[in-house]
Amino acid sequence: MSAQLQFRDVTLGYDRHPAVHHLTGEVMPGALLAVVGPNGAGKSTLFRGIVGLLKPLSGSIARGGVGVHDIAFLPQSADIDRSFPISVFDFVATGLWREVGAFGDLRGRRRARVAQALAAVGLTGFERRAIGTLSGGQTQRMLFARLMLQDARLIVLDEPFNAVDAKTSTDLLRLVKQWHAEGRTVLAALHDMDLVRNHFPQTLLLARGVVAWGCTAQVLTPDNLTAARKMCEAFDDDAAACVEADTPRAA
């Protein structure tokens, strides 16, 4: 089976400063991968690279035939204008964009699918509410409903359970596991190690570079976590050009 995501010596960053440095590895189709690491480890940067929002400074990311239309992305702090006068139903229905485009009909079967997605996240009855009236947890549920409708093969979730209560977190985790069971590839950046140990079979421990990557039990060892914590958050304006960038590496 060919990889869903293949990182070939990829370096991602901003203005020539790397945030993820020389990452090489593969994510197989249908994987449920937790990406963990301290703040500043490069998790969000890696995700932005995966979904095509950030071009690698060097190296490459192959998406195994998955086009941008087949990726669903939940950013860490969704850049939503909550004051915009749009209802929860209409907002969630934007998840059908790939299918309906500018003119596609949103009645009948598609309307029922939006209602099903809202029901799956426990937001039935909120359809006509303006998005600005939702609480933080409800907003996260709404974003998950939209992810469901996107029906993507690759789902990338950046800290999806941040600032939500235990019940919401449990409900949303159930959806993540359902996506995994359906054979979709799911990547999630997380900070709750217990949650990762209990529900994510594979983990990438990131600290600007790979500290460990593989089965969760073998990755989340005290030694590895200590090594990740010692990560240098250096951002040096006068740093020299990276020599490794010139050295060819095996994929």
């Binding site: 929002l53 941008v68 939503i80 964009w97």
Partner: peptide
């Protein structure tokens, strides 16, 4: 539709 989406959540369409 894309204009509404661009207003309310610009990142969503940038990925799509």
């Amino acid at each position: 539709r894309p204009l509404v989406m661009e207003c309310v959540d610009p990142l969503f369409l940038r990925v799509a």
